[in-house]
Design a binder for these strands. Structure first.
Lengths: 346, 346
DNA sequence: AAAAGTTTAGCATTCGAATGCAACAAATGA
DNA sequence: TCATTTGTTGCATTCGAATGCTAAACTTTT
């Protein structure tokens, strides 16, 4: 098999061996400390030395070794982003990644398929001494406990822990569901069904219970609550059950947009129903697909950008002072008055 | 502000300070080397020592420091996954992450908004001494060159470099487009338009040119080629142009599913056209949304799982032997005969 | 021009695990 | 029983950058 011969430039620099700060120091005629300080913001280096080092850096193509740096500083620039595979919101992850990158942090991505993978993830992120964690999944309290004991800042997104002191940002699910219920009722809907997400999803549980509670308060009873997973297919199946039930609902509150989309497709293509004439369907999230013309969902849009910014602000604050007191920030969603539900005209 | 008092267990172990291999060694009454070997697969450690170490590890809750390990082995278990934000295929990233994780590798995610961010990404992944790179974006040849010089294995997904020796897996775009063109022509379409993705996207360019070429071969000329970006909105705008043009096409080949979805929505909701009765629309990718009942696209499904597995296999092989000869693997797509286009019945 | 203050440079040490080497112990064979 | 092989172990060193400390080099003040 063909193997490259060791490449050596005319400078005598072996290109296959990484350039270290010593090499730069030697080239520039200064000490390794100087090179290190050159790359440390706020460290004191004279203009002369700076210039010499810069020249050497460019000549050799030096890049500091983040691994070595992390070892001595006991802190990496890695932030673990933990998301669940299913309710996995790509926009969120994407926005988050960009925001982290803009602040010089790197994204170590973990996609959890099952809750049980959490152990493994916790091990990994600890092994990499991540600077912080942004979690859009539920972690068992003992893991949260462990992270706080190890002083790894954590911010949860849309998971609020009552029992543990931990940072979180979330969208006010209860308020959003209340709005939706009120809108539906105001438009005269009285046979409202709910399509829930998986029962082990706190997000889903909270949305469903908030909606149910509001309905109780205004004196309406859900005609049915169907449990589905957070998928398109789950929505379709849920709709199938509802549409063929004796007392067909005239409105459906879905625990997220994906379910709402599934419901709409099944209602239209499976049962020939018209949305919203025959049945109103509302979602939650404000996902991109939900706003496509075919669906044009009535939904609650979560302020993704605000939430991401808030999460990162909190995270950075805690990275600077890990003992900082915890805080929970709750943002209101935004009611999107799409065309997937018959609403009272205002 | 409230600060936690330093926690100290009855064992006298300071919980706030990470446990090192020396602590474990001391606890187990062995040397640090033994502890290290315990965690090195294939290293020789006697059963007696193993047991002692295991006990100490559990007692102290030791986890090897991946940073320190990477420093000395000059290799991390991190794999950089570089994706573009726009054509960002969430399914792909998700599947890839899982597959990497299953092989003990961690995902360092980089989302590129602009090509120009590539410099920064390359710096970062080099600083972290990643074990490898999976890139679903185009990198400038000089970067590819640099990576190979530094012996960092790279696998490109759906980017084939002719000029550089580099690994890649891809879906056969030309074949797929040929199938689509043939299907459309066989069904009697003769005024076919093309909606292209951004001009700086090689994927788009290849799909468009393959389709155009096939059309030329069968003696049809595209009535129009509209350039859009790879977004829903882009698809809608493209459709707007096409629908209002003098010689309205009877079929549209879109450079990806997202564009096709946008076209369909605009055709139906903007122009009241029926798909596929009034106009046929085909896409490319086999995305989940494209298969939803509202769209039911005729498209080419890329074999994501196969491609991811192949990419990782190649990557791991090169991690084991960075000098390994490069290889390009091309998979056929799968024609999905949806309902978004009028096809010859078979 | 000397004294005091302020930068800046370099030395030496540190982070935590992996590994070549030599010493040693156990197992095997003669 | 002794020689040989095989398997374990610990010592000492290494990876590459950050930083406390001291010494030296500049500034500023008087």
């Amino acid at each position: 098999m063909a193997r490259k011969a060791a490449q050596t430039t005319s400078d005598g620099v072996d290109k296959n061996k990484p350039v270290t700060s010593y090499d730069v120091a030697h080239e520039a005629g200064v000490s390794q400390s100087a090179v290190s300080r050159y790359f440390t913001p706020g460290a004191s280096v004279s203009a002369r030395t700076r210039a010499k080092i810069l020249k050497a850096v460019n000549k050799l193509g030096y890049q500091p070794n983040a691994i070595a740096r992390s070892l001595i500083t006991r802190r990496s620039s890695l932030v673990a982003v933990v998301v669940a595979n299913l309710s996995f919101n790509p926009e969120f992850t994407s926005v988050l990644g960009q925001a982290l990158s803009a602040r010089g942090l790197n994204t170590l991505l973990f996609t959890l398929d099952h809750e049980s993978d959490a152990d493994h993830v916790i091990d990994q992120l600890w092994q990499y001494r991540v600077a912080g964690v942004v979690a859009a999944v539920t972690l068992p309290p003992r893991h949260v406990e462990m992270l706080s004991q190890r002083e790894i800042p954590v911010v949860f997104v849309n998971r609020v822990y009552e029992e543990v002191a931990v940072n979180s940002v979330s969208c006010d699910q209860s308020e959003g569901e209340r709005w939706l219920v009120d809108e539906l009722c105001a438009a005269g809907h009285c046979r409202i069904a709910i399509v829930s997400g998986p029962e082990d999803s706190p997000v889903s549980r909270q949305r469903v219970s908030s909606a149910a509670e509001r309905m109780a308060n205004v004196g309406v009873k859900p005609v049915e609550i169907v449990v589905a997973d957070f998928t398109y297919q789950g929505g379709r199946e849920a709709m199938r059950k509802l549409a063929s039930s004796a007392n067909r609902p005239d409105a459906i509150i879905c625990a997220n947009d994906m379910l709402a989309i599934g419901c709409m497709d099944e209602a239209r293509h499976g049962f020939g129903l018209k949305v919203p004439e025959d049945i109103s369907i509302v979602g939650f999230d404000g996902s991109a697909a939900g706003q496509w013309a075919s669906y044009d969902l009535v939904t609650i849009r979560q302020p993704t950008n605000l939430m991401v910014d808030a999460a990162i602000d909190m995270l950075m604050a805690r990275i600077d002072d890990p003992q900082l007191i915890t805080e929970k920030r709750v943002f209101s969603g935004e009611l999107v008055r799409g065309a997937s539900a018959r609403l009272a005209s205002t």
